[in-house]
Amino acid sequence: MNNAIQIENLALELNGSPILRGVSFDIGQGEYVSIIGPNGAGKTTLLRCLLGMYPYSGSAKIGGTECRGYDSRALARQVSYVPQTHDIEFPLAVYDFVMMGRYPYLSALSPAQKQDEDAVEQALEITGTTQFRTRTFRTLSGGERQKVYIAAALAQETPVMLLDEPATFLDWRHQTEVMRLLKKINVERGVTILAVNHDLNSAAHWSDRIIALKDGRTLFTGTPHELIQPAPLETLFETAFVRKETLAPASEQ
């Protein structure tokens, strides 16, 4: 079976400064993987490379094809995206916004077909946002907005979904709801999920695997259990915030 995402020696310079300096990892189909790493590690940039937004060097494949080789619509049928911030105000109803997820399936003048409407209805239903369909974004709370963004990505019906800090700006209850929703999408729909996550605990709790980036390189890939050890964490964040004596007394003495 092919890997959903294959990244090998991915590198990118923006305005002369290297952002990614050789990232390599594979993600299997149906996996739920979190990317962690300090600020400036290149996490968001990595997602954007996979979305075909940057002319990277090295290799980044989704569904076995190089991301920069895709036509933009074809790529959007392979991978969907939920961005980090939702600070852009737009005067659209929730239903119309989610319908935009069907863009890669529609030609210029054809109206939405039955299958597009079905996809939107399902996306609204799974995310529990059906009751917001006629509301505008202005009237939604942060947590509700995030679910609608996820619904729009779902309507794209892609095998892979990328998310940039899906729960960072939400209160605890909505954080849990969103993470639970992502797990449900992952398990029930078999969508491969790659999410940047700043919250180590939440990443460890929800993911099958964690990838740690630092200074544009892959520092670590492994299960949450392998990562939550003093040594990898200290290399990653360069600080002894983990109390070694309580976490790993055996190896220290």
Binding site: R48, L51, G52, M53, S72, R73, A74, L75, A76, R77, S80, Y81, P83, I88, F90, P91, L92, F97, M100, G101, Y103, P104, A152, Q156
Partner: peptide, 12 residues
């Protein structure tokens, strides 16, 4: 309307 980044991710 929804921003260039997201429009691009939707396949525009």
């Amino acid at each position: 309307l929804i921003g260039e980044e997201l429009a691009s991710a939707r396949g525009v």
